[in-house]
Design a protein around this nucleic acid. Sequence first.
DNA 1: TAAATAATACCCCGAAAGAGTGATTTTTTT
DNA 2: AAAAAAATCACTCTTTCGGGGTATTATTTA
Lengths: 213, 213
Amino acid sequence: MQPFRILIVDDHAHAREGIREILEEFEDFLIIGEAKNGKEAIQLTEQLLPDIILMDIQMPEMDGLEATKRIKLQFPAVKIVMITVSDDITDLFDALKKGAQGYLLKNIQSDQWVEHLRAFALDEVPMSKEIAFQILKEFPQKKALSKENIPLSTRELELLQLVAKGLSNKEISKALFISENTVKSHLKNILSKLHLDNRVQLTSYAFQQGLVD
Amino acid sequence: MQPFRILIVDDHAHAREGIREILEEFEDFLIIGEAKNGKEAIQLTEQLLPDIILMDIQMPEMDGLEATKRIKLQFPAVKIVMITVSDDITDLFDALKKGAQGYLLKNIQSDQWVEHLRAFALDEVPMSKEIAFQILKEFPQKKALSKENIPLSTRELELLQLVAKGLSNKEISKALFISENTVKSHLKNILSKLHLDNRVQLTSYAFQQGLVD
DNA sequence: TAAATAATACCCCGAAAGAGTGATTTTTTT
DNA sequence: AAAAAAATCACTCTTTCGGGGTATTATTTA
Protein backbone atom coordinates (compact mmCIF):
# COMPACT_ATOMS: atom_id res chain seq x y z
CA MET A 1 0.00 0.00 0.00
CA GLN A 2 1.18 3.47 -0.87
CA PRO A 3 1.85 5.87 1.98
CA PHE A 4 -0.04 9.14 2.18
CA ARG A 5 2.09 11.92 0.74
CA ILE A 6 2.05 14.85 3.14
CA LEU A 7 2.96 18.51 2.76
CA ILE A 8 3.50 20.44 5.99
CA VAL A 9 2.79 24.16 6.00
CA ASP A 10 3.68 26.11 9.11
CA ASP A 11 5.68 29.26 9.64
CA HIS A 12 7.47 27.92 12.69
CA ALA A 13 10.34 25.61 11.88
CA HIS A 14 10.05 23.93 15.25
CA ALA A 15 6.38 23.24 14.73
CA ARG A 16 7.12 21.64 11.37
CA GLU A 17 9.78 19.56 13.00
CA GLY A 18 7.39 18.50 15.73
CA ILE A 19 4.87 17.29 13.18
CA ARG A 20 7.58 15.56 11.19
CA GLU A 21 8.86 13.76 14.27
CA ILE A 22 5.46 12.41 15.05
CA LEU A 23 4.49 11.35 11.56
CA GLU A 24 7.82 9.81 10.65
CA GLU A 25 7.17 7.05 13.14
CA PHE A 26 4.40 5.75 10.92
CA GLU A 27 5.04 3.99 7.65
CA ASP A 28 1.80 5.04 6.08
CA PHE A 29 2.72 8.72 6.22
CA LEU A 30 5.42 10.20 4.01
CA ILE A 31 6.41 13.83 4.35
CA ILE A 32 7.29 15.08 0.91
CA GLY A 33 7.77 18.74 1.65
CA GLU A 34 7.58 21.67 4.00
CA ALA A 35 6.45 25.23 3.36
CA LYS A 36 6.52 28.16 5.73
CA ASN A 37 3.80 30.32 4.24
CA GLY A 38 0.86 30.24 1.87
CA LYS A 39 2.86 31.19 -1.18
CA GLU A 40 5.38 28.43 -0.72
CA ALA A 41 2.50 26.06 -0.08
CA ILE A 42 0.96 26.83 -3.46
CA GLN A 43 4.30 26.46 -5.22
CA LEU A 44 5.07 23.13 -3.60
CA THR A 45 1.57 21.84 -4.20
CA GLU A 46 2.01 22.50 -7.92
CA GLN A 47 5.35 20.73 -7.91
CA LEU A 48 4.63 17.79 -5.66
CA LEU A 49 0.87 17.23 -5.74
CA PRO A 50 0.56 15.91 -2.20
CA ASP A 51 -2.35 13.78 -1.01
CA ILE A 52 -2.78 15.78 2.15
CA ILE A 53 -1.70 19.23 3.21
CA LEU A 54 -1.35 20.01 6.88
CA MET A 55 -1.82 23.74 6.94
CA ASP A 56 -1.33 26.21 9.75
CA ILE A 57 -3.80 29.08 9.81
CA GLN A 58 -1.70 31.89 11.20
CA MET A 59 1.17 32.61 8.84
CA PRO A 60 2.95 35.67 7.45
CA GLU A 61 2.84 36.59 3.76
CA MET A 62 -0.21 34.52 2.98
CA ASP A 63 -2.25 32.86 5.66
CA GLY A 64 -3.63 29.34 5.65
CA LEU A 65 -7.17 30.31 4.81
CA GLU A 66 -6.26 32.23 1.70
CA ALA A 67 -3.84 29.50 0.60
CA THR A 68 -6.52 26.86 1.14
CA LYS A 69 -8.97 28.76 -1.00
CA ARG A 70 -6.52 29.07 -3.88
CA ILE A 71 -5.26 25.52 -3.71
CA LYS A 72 -8.75 24.03 -3.62
CA LEU A 73 -9.62 26.09 -6.69
CA GLN A 74 -6.71 24.66 -8.63
CA PHE A 75 -6.48 21.20 -7.09
CA PRO A 76 -9.86 20.15 -5.71
CA ALA A 77 -8.64 16.61 -5.02
CA VAL A 78 -6.02 17.64 -2.50
CA LYS A 79 -7.17 17.18 1.06
CA ILE A 80 -6.35 20.04 3.33
CA VAL A 81 -6.31 19.77 7.09
CA MET A 82 -5.96 22.94 9.08
CA ILE A 83 -3.78 22.77 12.13
CA THR A 84 -3.89 25.36 14.83
CA VAL A 85 -3.46 25.95 18.52
CA SER A 86 -6.41 28.23 18.51
CA ASP A 87 -9.36 27.22 20.57
CA ASP A 88 -11.35 29.86 18.84
CA ILE A 89 -13.81 27.93 16.75
CA THR A 90 -14.54 30.82 14.41
CA ASP A 91 -11.34 29.87 12.61
CA LEU A 92 -12.79 26.42 12.14
CA PHE A 93 -15.84 27.61 10.27
CA ASP A 94 -13.75 29.91 8.15
CA ALA A 95 -11.49 27.02 7.26
CA LEU A 96 -14.35 24.74 6.30
CA LYS A 97 -15.92 27.48 4.22
CA LYS A 98 -12.68 27.95 2.32
CA GLY A 99 -12.64 24.29 1.38
CA ALA A 100 -10.62 22.58 4.07
CA GLN A 101 -11.70 19.01 4.66
CA GLY A 102 -10.47 18.79 8.16
CA TYR A 103 -9.42 20.57 11.20
CA LEU A 104 -6.95 19.34 13.75
CA LEU A 105 -5.75 21.03 16.87
CA LYS A 106 -2.10 21.15 17.74
CA ASN A 107 -2.96 20.72 21.36
CA ILE A 108 -4.23 17.16 21.32
CA GLN A 109 -1.98 14.26 22.19
CA SER A 110 0.17 12.99 19.39
CA ASP A 111 -1.23 9.45 19.19
CA GLN A 112 -4.79 10.67 18.92
CA TRP A 113 -3.66 13.31 16.49
CA VAL A 114 -2.25 10.69 14.16
CA GLU A 115 -5.29 8.46 14.54
CA HIS A 116 -7.58 11.22 13.48
CA LEU A 117 -5.38 12.10 10.57
CA ARG A 118 -5.25 8.52 9.33
CA ALA A 119 -8.97 8.09 9.63
CA PHE A 120 -9.39 11.26 7.72
CA ALA A 121 -6.91 10.17 5.02
CA LEU A 122 -8.79 6.91 4.54
CA ASP A 123 -12.07 8.76 4.25
CA GLU A 124 -13.36 6.68 7.09
CA VAL A 125 -14.28 9.77 8.92
CA PRO A 126 -15.71 12.76 7.14
CA MET A 127 -14.03 15.28 9.40
CA SER A 128 -16.96 17.36 10.40
CA LYS A 129 -17.63 20.26 12.65
CA GLU A 130 -19.05 17.78 15.14
CA ILE A 131 -15.81 15.88 15.39
CA ALA A 132 -13.84 19.03 15.68
CA PHE A 133 -16.12 20.12 18.46
CA GLN A 134 -15.66 16.80 20.15
CA ILE A 135 -11.93 17.18 20.03
CA LEU A 136 -12.24 20.63 21.42
CA LYS A 137 -14.37 19.33 24.22
CA GLU A 138 -12.02 16.53 25.12
CA PHE A 139 -8.92 18.66 25.09
CA PRO A 140 -9.75 22.07 26.33
CA GLN A 141 -6.31 22.79 27.74
CA LYS A 142 -3.57 23.92 25.50
CA LYS A 143 -0.93 21.31 25.10
CA ALA A 144 2.11 21.41 22.90
CA LEU A 145 2.17 19.44 19.71
CA SER A 146 5.09 17.18 20.60
CA LYS A 147 5.32 14.41 23.16
CA GLU A 148 4.04 16.39 26.07
CA ASN A 149 3.47 19.89 27.26
CA ILE A 150 6.83 20.93 28.62
CA PRO A 151 6.56 23.99 30.80
CA LEU A 152 9.42 26.41 31.26
CA SER A 153 11.50 26.07 34.39
CA THR A 154 11.86 28.98 36.77
CA ARG A 155 15.34 29.67 35.52
CA GLU A 156 14.09 29.69 31.96
CA LEU A 157 11.34 32.14 32.84
CA GLU A 158 13.94 34.33 34.50
CA LEU A 159 15.94 34.31 31.30
CA LEU A 160 12.87 35.02 29.22
CA GLN A 161 12.29 38.27 31.10
CA LEU A 162 15.72 39.55 30.17
CA VAL A 163 15.47 38.42 26.57
CA ALA A 164 12.21 40.33 26.20
CA LYS A 165 13.89 43.45 27.54
CA GLY A 166 16.23 43.31 24.60
CA LEU A 167 19.38 42.24 26.42
CA SER A 168 22.03 40.39 24.47
CA ASN A 169 23.19 36.94 25.53
CA LYS A 170 26.35 38.48 26.95
CA GLU A 171 24.39 41.01 28.98
CA ILE A 172 22.10 38.28 30.28
CA SER A 173 25.09 36.18 31.28
CA LYS A 174 26.46 39.07 33.34
CA ALA A 175 23.09 39.77 34.91
CA LEU A 176 22.62 36.16 36.00
CA PHE A 177 26.27 35.40 36.77
CA ILE A 178 26.49 32.51 34.33
CA SER A 179 28.47 32.00 31.14
CA GLU A 180 27.26 33.14 27.78
CA ASN A 181 27.30 29.51 26.64
CA THR A 182 24.85 28.66 29.37
CA VAL A 183 22.59 31.48 28.30
CA LYS A 184 22.65 30.10 24.78
CA SER A 185 21.87 26.64 26.07
CA HIS A 186 18.88 27.85 28.03
CA LEU A 187 17.66 29.90 25.14
CA LYS A 188 17.89 26.95 22.77
CA ASN A 189 15.86 24.86 25.18
CA ILE A 190 13.24 27.55 25.56
CA LEU A 191 12.84 28.03 21.82
CA SER A 192 12.66 24.30 21.33
CA LYS A 193 10.04 23.82 24.02
CA LEU A 194 7.84 26.56 22.64
CA HIS A 195 8.41 25.70 18.99
CA LEU A 196 9.73 29.13 18.23
CA ASP A 197 12.57 30.15 15.97
CA ASN A 198 14.21 33.20 17.50
CA ARG A 199 14.27 35.64 20.40
CA VAL A 200 11.93 38.09 18.72
CA GLN A 201 9.23 35.46 18.38
CA LEU A 202 9.90 34.58 22.01
CA THR A 203 9.39 38.20 22.98
CA SER A 204 6.11 38.41 21.10
CA TYR A 205 5.01 35.16 22.68
CA ALA A 206 5.88 36.47 26.13
CA PHE A 207 3.80 39.59 25.62
CA GLN A 208 0.87 37.71 24.17
CA GLN A 209 0.90 35.23 27.04
CA GLY A 210 1.23 38.00 29.57
CA LEU A 211 4.53 36.66 30.85
CA VAL A 212 6.07 40.13 30.88
CA ASP A 213 4.99 43.66 31.73
CA MET B 1 37.25 77.77 33.33
CA GLN B 2 37.06 74.04 33.68
CA PRO B 3 34.26 72.20 31.88
CA PHE B 4 31.78 70.15 33.84
CA ARG B 5 32.80 66.51 33.72
CA ILE B 6 29.75 64.42 32.83
CA LEU B 7 28.97 60.72 33.13
CA ILE B 8 26.04 59.47 31.09
CA VAL B 9 24.11 56.46 32.37
CA ASP B 10 21.45 55.00 30.13
CA ASP B 11 20.80 51.49 28.94
CA HIS B 12 20.01 52.56 25.40
CA ALA B 13 23.04 53.29 23.25
CA HIS B 14 21.02 55.58 21.05
CA ALA B 15 19.81 57.61 23.99
CA ARG B 16 23.37 58.01 25.23
CA GLU B 17 24.41 59.10 21.79
CA GLY B 18 21.58 61.60 21.64
CA ILE B 19 22.70 63.20 24.89
CA ARG B 20 26.30 63.16 23.76
CA GLU B 21 25.43 64.87 20.49
CA ILE B 22 23.63 67.63 22.27
CA LEU B 23 26.20 68.24 24.98
CA GLU B 24 29.26 68.04 22.74
CA GLU B 25 28.20 71.25 21.09
CA PHE B 26 28.98 73.11 24.28
CA GLU B 27 32.50 73.71 25.54
CA ASP B 28 31.55 73.83 29.16
CA PHE B 29 30.38 70.21 29.13
CA LEU B 30 32.80 67.31 28.81
CA ILE B 31 31.54 63.77 28.59
CA ILE B 32 34.05 61.58 30.36
CA GLY B 33 32.22 58.30 30.29
CA GLU B 34 29.14 56.26 29.53
CA ALA B 35 27.53 53.47 31.52
CA LYS B 36 24.60 51.31 30.56
CA ASN B 37 23.39 50.23 33.98
CA GLY B 38 23.67 51.03 37.64
CA LYS B 39 26.58 48.72 38.28
CA GLU B 40 28.67 50.23 35.55
CA ALA B 41 27.69 53.65 36.81
CA ILE B 42 29.11 52.90 40.26
CA GLN B 43 32.31 51.48 38.79
CA LEU B 44 32.87 54.45 36.53
CA THR B 45 32.06 56.91 39.27
CA GLU B 46 34.79 55.38 41.42
CA GLN B 47 37.25 55.54 38.56
CA LEU B 48 36.42 58.93 37.07
CA LEU B 49 34.76 60.96 39.81
CA PRO B 50 32.50 62.99 37.52
CA ASP B 51 31.01 66.33 38.52
CA ILE B 52 27.60 65.41 37.25
CA ILE B 53 25.92 62.12 36.49
CA LEU B 54 23.03 62.04 34.04
CA MET B 55 21.18 58.93 35.13
CA ASP B 56 18.32 57.12 33.47
CA ILE B 57 15.79 55.62 35.87
CA GLN B 58 14.68 52.53 34.02
CA MET B 59 17.62 50.20 33.48
CA PRO B 60 18.32 46.48 33.66
CA GLU B 61 20.65 44.95 36.26
CA MET B 62 20.50 47.90 38.63
CA ASP B 63 18.12 50.78 38.11
CA GLY B 64 18.89 54.45 38.43
CA LEU B 65 17.26 54.89 41.81
CA GLU B 66 19.27 52.17 43.49
CA ALA B 67 22.47 53.36 41.82
CA THR B 68 21.78 56.93 42.92
CA LYS B 69 21.31 55.82 46.51
CA ARG B 70 24.60 53.93 46.56
CA ILE B 71 26.61 56.59 44.78
CA LYS B 72 25.35 59.36 47.04
CA LEU B 73 26.35 57.28 50.07
CA GLN B 74 29.90 56.94 48.81
CA PHE B 75 30.30 60.23 46.96
CA PRO B 76 27.97 62.84 48.39
CA ALA B 77 29.56 65.62 46.33
CA VAL B 78 28.61 64.14 42.98
CA LYS B 79 25.54 65.75 41.50
CA ILE B 80 23.08 63.35 40.02
CA VAL B 81 20.41 64.35 37.57
CA MET B 82 17.79 61.81 36.70
CA ILE B 83 16.73 61.66 33.09
CA THR B 84 13.58 59.96 31.96
CA VAL B 85 10.83 60.04 29.41
CA SER B 86 8.33 59.21 32.07
CA ASP B 87 5.66 61.76 32.74
CA ASP B 88 4.81 59.91 35.90
CA ILE B 89 5.89 62.23 38.64
CA THR B 90 6.05 59.52 41.27
CA ASP B 91 9.46 58.64 39.86
CA LEU B 92 10.49 62.20 40.53
CA PHE B 93 9.78 62.04 44.23
CA ASP B 94 11.50 58.70 44.51
CA ALA B 95 14.54 60.13 42.80
CA LEU B 96 14.72 63.15 45.07
CA LYS B 97 14.30 60.94 48.11
CA LYS B 98 17.21 58.77 47.02
CA GLY B 99 19.45 61.80 46.84
CA ALA B 100 19.22 63.02 43.27
CA GLN B 101 19.73 66.74 42.99
CA GLY B 102 17.87 67.16 39.78
CA TYR B 103 15.40 65.76 37.40
CA LEU B 104 15.29 66.34 33.69
CA LEU B 105 12.90 64.97 31.16
CA LYS B 106 14.10 63.54 27.91
CA ASN B 107 11.14 65.06 26.19
CA ILE B 108 12.01 68.72 26.42
CA GLN B 109 13.74 70.52 23.61
CA SER B 110 17.48 70.20 23.57
CA ASP B 111 18.37 73.86 24.01
CA GLN B 112 16.19 74.20 27.07
CA TRP B 113 17.50 70.91 28.30
CA VAL B 114 21.07 72.16 28.22
CA GLU B 115 20.14 75.47 29.78
CA HIS B 116 18.56 73.74 32.73
CA LEU B 117 21.52 71.46 33.10
CA ARG B 118 24.00 74.31 33.08
CA ALA B 119 22.02 76.32 35.58
CA PHE B 120 21.90 73.27 37.77
CA ALA B 121 25.63 72.66 37.40
CA LEU B 122 26.40 76.23 38.46
CA ASP B 123 24.14 75.88 41.48
CA GLU B 124 22.21 78.84 40.19
CA VAL B 125 19.09 76.83 40.35
CA PRO B 126 18.38 74.41 43.12
CA MET B 127 16.51 71.98 40.92
CA SER B 128 13.35 71.61 42.89
CA LYS B 129 10.12 69.78 42.54
CA GLU B 130 8.56 73.06 41.50
CA ILE B 131 10.87 73.46 38.56
CA ALA B 132 10.38 69.89 37.53
CA PHE B 133 6.67 70.43 37.68
CA GLN B 134 7.03 73.51 35.58
CA ILE B 135 8.95 71.60 32.97
CA LEU B 136 6.32 68.93 33.01
CA LYS B 137 3.65 71.52 32.54
CA GLU B 138 5.37 73.16 29.62
CA PHE B 139 6.09 69.93 27.82
CA PRO B 140 3.29 67.54 28.48
CA GLN B 141 3.65 65.66 25.20
CA LYS B 142 6.25 63.03 24.82
CA LYS B 143 8.96 64.20 22.54
CA ALA B 144 12.17 62.41 21.65
CA LEU B 145 15.39 63.55 23.17
CA SER B 146 17.03 64.60 19.93
CA LYS B 147 16.14 67.47 17.62
CA GLU B 148 12.48 66.68 17.28
CA ASN B 149 9.92 63.99 17.67
CA ILE B 150 10.14 61.97 14.49
CA PRO B 151 7.19 59.67 13.97
CA LEU B 152 7.41 56.45 12.01
CA SER B 153 6.29 56.51 8.39
CA THR B 154 3.60 54.13 7.16
CA ARG B 155 6.19 51.97 5.48
CA GLU B 156 8.20 51.81 8.66
CA LEU B 157 5.13 50.79 10.64
CA GLU B 158 4.49 48.10 8.07
CA LEU B 159 8.00 46.83 8.58
CA LEU B 160 7.63 46.98 12.33
CA GLN B 161 4.71 44.56 12.19
CA LEU B 162 6.82 41.95 10.45
CA VAL B 163 9.80 42.47 12.71
CA ALA B 164 7.60 41.89 15.74
CA LYS B 165 6.39 38.64 14.23
CA GLY B 166 9.94 37.41 14.32
CA LEU B 167 10.69 37.52 10.60
CA SER B 168 14.32 37.90 9.54
CA ASN B 169 15.38 40.77 7.31
CA LYS B 170 15.49 38.42 4.36
CA GLU B 171 11.99 37.17 5.03
CA ILE B 172 10.71 40.70 5.39
CA SER B 173 12.34 41.68 2.11
CA LYS B 174 10.50 38.85 0.34
CA ALA B 175 7.23 39.72 2.00
CA LEU B 176 7.41 43.36 0.96
CA PHE B 177 9.10 42.81 -2.41
CA ILE B 178 12.08 45.00 -1.60
CA SER B 179 15.76 44.20 -1.19
CA GLU B 180 17.24 43.08 2.08
CA ASN B 181 19.41 46.20 2.04
CA THR B 182 16.32 48.33 2.00
CA VAL B 183 14.90 46.42 4.92
CA LYS B 184 18.09 47.08 6.82
CA SER B 185 17.94 50.75 5.92
CA HIS B 186 14.39 51.05 7.20
CA LEU B 187 15.21 49.15 10.35
CA LYS B 188 18.21 51.34 11.05
CA ASN B 189 16.03 54.42 10.69
CA ILE B 190 13.36 52.99 12.94
CA LEU B 191 15.79 52.05 15.70
CA SER B 192 17.47 55.42 15.43
CA LYS B 193 14.19 57.33 15.61
CA LEU B 194 13.02 55.42 18.67
CA HIS B 195 16.42 55.34 20.37
CA LEU B 196 16.40 51.58 20.55
CA ASP B 197 19.26 49.17 20.05
CA ASN B 198 17.85 46.04 18.47
CA ARG B 199 14.76 44.35 17.06
CA VAL B 200 13.83 42.70 20.34
CA GLN B 201 13.61 46.07 22.06
CA LEU B 202 11.61 47.26 19.09
CA THR B 203 9.24 44.33 19.54
CA SER B 204 8.77 45.06 23.24
CA TYR B 205 8.22 48.71 22.41
CA ALA B 206 5.61 47.81 19.81
CA PHE B 207 3.67 45.68 22.27
CA GLN B 208 3.87 48.24 25.04
CA GLN B 209 2.68 50.98 22.71
CA GLY B 210 -0.07 48.78 21.37
CA LEU B 211 1.27 48.97 17.84
CA VAL B 212 0.81 45.24 17.30
CA ASP B 213 -1.78 42.59 18.15
C1' DT C 1 10.47 76.06 -7.73
C1' DA C 2 13.30 74.78 -3.99
C1' DA C 3 13.72 72.03 0.01
C1' DA C 4 12.55 68.30 2.85
C1' DT C 5 11.01 63.66 3.51
C1' DA C 6 10.22 58.93 2.16
C1' DA C 7 11.52 54.87 -0.08
C1' DT C 8 14.69 52.50 -2.37
C1' DA C 9 19.52 50.30 -2.69
C1' DC C 10 24.53 49.28 -2.07
C1' DC C 11 29.10 48.56 0.42
C1' DC C 12 31.99 47.02 4.43
C1' DC C 13 32.74 45.08 8.87
C1' DG C 14 32.62 43.20 13.45
C1' DA C 15 29.52 41.39 16.77
C1' DA C 16 25.73 38.54 17.91
C1' DA C 17 22.67 34.82 17.21
C1' DG C 18 21.43 30.27 16.57
C1' DA C 19 22.11 25.27 15.15
C1' DG C 20 24.60 21.15 16.16
C1' DT C 21 26.92 18.18 19.54
C1' DG C 22 28.53 16.74 23.71
C1' DA C 23 29.41 16.90 28.56
C1' DT C 24 29.28 17.53 33.80
C1' DT C 25 27.06 18.57 38.06
C1' DT C 26 23.29 19.40 41.02
C1' DT C 27 18.59 18.88 42.23
C1' DT C 28 14.35 16.58 42.17
C1' DT C 29 11.48 12.77 41.57
C1' DT C 30 10.42 8.03 41.55
C1' DA D 1 19.35 4.06 45.40
C1' DA D 2 18.30 4.89 40.75
C1' DA D 3 16.34 7.67 37.25
C1' DA D 4 14.89 11.97 35.44
C1' DA D 5 15.13 16.75 35.06
C1' DA D 6 17.42 21.13 35.61
C1' DA D 7 21.39 23.94 35.35
C1' DT D 8 25.78 24.53 34.06
C1' DC D 9 29.65 24.99 30.32
C1' DA D 10 32.41 24.24 25.86
C1' DC D 11 33.50 24.25 20.91
C1' DT D 12 32.56 24.83 15.99
C1' DC D 13 30.25 26.84 12.22
C1' DT D 14 27.15 29.63 9.45
C1' DT D 15 23.89 33.14 9.16
C1' DT D 16 22.00 37.25 10.75
C1' DC D 17 22.28 41.76 12.89
C1' DG D 18 23.45 46.23 13.43
C1' DG D 19 26.55 50.34 12.78
C1' DG D 20 29.18 53.08 9.54
C1' DG D 21 28.83 55.11 5.37
C1' DT D 22 26.76 56.89 0.61
C1' DA D 23 23.47 57.43 -3.16
C1' DT D 24 19.34 57.74 -6.27
C1' DT D 25 14.56 58.58 -7.23
C1' DA D 26 9.99 59.90 -6.05
C1' DT D 27 6.81 62.39 -3.46
C1' DT D 28 5.39 66.00 -0.49
C1' DT D 29 5.71 70.28 1.61
C1' DA D 30 7.02 74.93 2.18
